[in-house]
Simulated scan of single mutants.
Amino acid sequence: MVAESGIDWKLVEVMPWWKAMMSCPQDPKHHGEGDVARHTHLVVAALQADPRFADLEEPARRILRLAALLHDCGKPATTRYEENGRISSNGHARVGASIARRLLWERGVDFAEREAVCALVRWHMRPGYCLDSDDPERTAITIAQSTRCDWLTLLAEADTRGRIAPGTDDALVPVGLFGELCKELGVWDAPYAFSNSHSRFVYFRTPGRDPRYAAYDDLKGTLTLMSGLPGAGKDTYIQQNLVHLPIISLDVLRKELGIAPSDPQEAVAMAAMERARVFLRKKQDFVWNATNLRHELRARPLGLAADYGFRVKIVYREVPHTQLFTQNRNRATAVPESVLNKYLDRWEVPTEIEAHTVTYVL
């Protein structure tokens, strides 16, 4: 699909996700070029014409090409006609990151490259609006935790040039200012240099926090939270590395409560939180074992543990596409493939914004 020589457009243009973009309209006020696919062609061309892109080495060019190709793949799922006749696609960047993750995982793209692409897709809109946020410094530091801001700036500028609309030159100004802010903060091509992992963890949990402040580490215990698709090997990892700790397993709780994976899960989550409070009050290390594939789902147990003064670790487990479906079918508690496909459509890999440490077991 994408190689050092460029994009294989004949291969791309027969894919279902590309055809969806071909039939997806955009607001003509901002996209006089037409549908999302036409816009994407222009963005890729603008990126490849940028001399700064030519100065990059592989795999950076490949990552940026993929990000440009996929940056708006979430628009078909999020595009709506407003009452005033305008067209919007609110939330398409986050949805697009999940779509891109599944597409690249199914094609066997290297994990680090894939996640670099997904992070660029996730944040590609933000440089143009960063300075309008309540806390531009915090926005830039948050973005830099999962993507390179120099690459993101290149993509955002190509995204701006790759459309037909009035005021394109004006729209490039805030993107450039975002880049200057990133350089000033020291996050142009690397994450922010926090004093330690606890300072980083507290910063991302505390609005208005000074990133330079070194947090005092008086943590009382550790929660290890497992994350990964059903069948990815989370139970095996626990048996090999964490079997000495008490385990809260949402699969076990579902059995106890008689709740199927396809049923509403709130009762299971509430029961798990109550069991977690028992370990937290005792200051006892423990494991939380569930898929935990969305940021919001991870935030509940991680936030609870943080409130009790616990260190939080995430262990993310992943296997290749074909292996996953085989392992899931062979599990004692196999997840229906219809449910597994829903997980894949809302799949967010954890980052160090969420925890003291994240271990990727691939």
Rank of each mutant, 00 (worst) to 15 (best):
M125W: 03
L103A: 02
A97T: 11
L120T: 05
R94I: 14
E82M: 13
R80C: 06
E83N: 08
A116Q: 07
E137Y: 00
I99Q: 07
F111L: 08
P59E: 00
R94E: 14
F111Y: 13
A67P: 03
A67Q: 06
N84C: 08
S89V: 03
I99W: 00
C130N: 01
G85N: 01
I87H: 01
Y81T: 14
T139L: 14
G96D: 04
A116T: 02
A54R: 11
G85L: 02
V95Y: 09
L70T: 15
F53T: 04
P51M: 13
A60M: 05
M125F: 05
E113Y: 03
L64E: 12
A116C: 03
G96F: 04
S98I: 01
D72F: 01
A54E: 12
W105H: 10
N90M: 06
V121M: 14
H92C: 13
F53H: 10
C118Y: 06
G85V: 07
D135P: 10
C118D: 10
E83V: 13
E82Q: 13
P127Q: 06
R80L: 12
R101P: 00
V117F: 02
H124S: 12
A93R: 07
M125S: 15
A93S: 15
A60G: 09
P59S: 00
E58S: 15
V121R: 13
K75L: 08
D72R: 01
A97K: 08
P51V: 15
E137Q: 08
F111I: 12
P127L: 08
F111G: 02
R86G: 05
A100F: 01
H71T: 01
R114N: 05
H92S: 09
R107D: 13
A68T: 07
T78H: 00
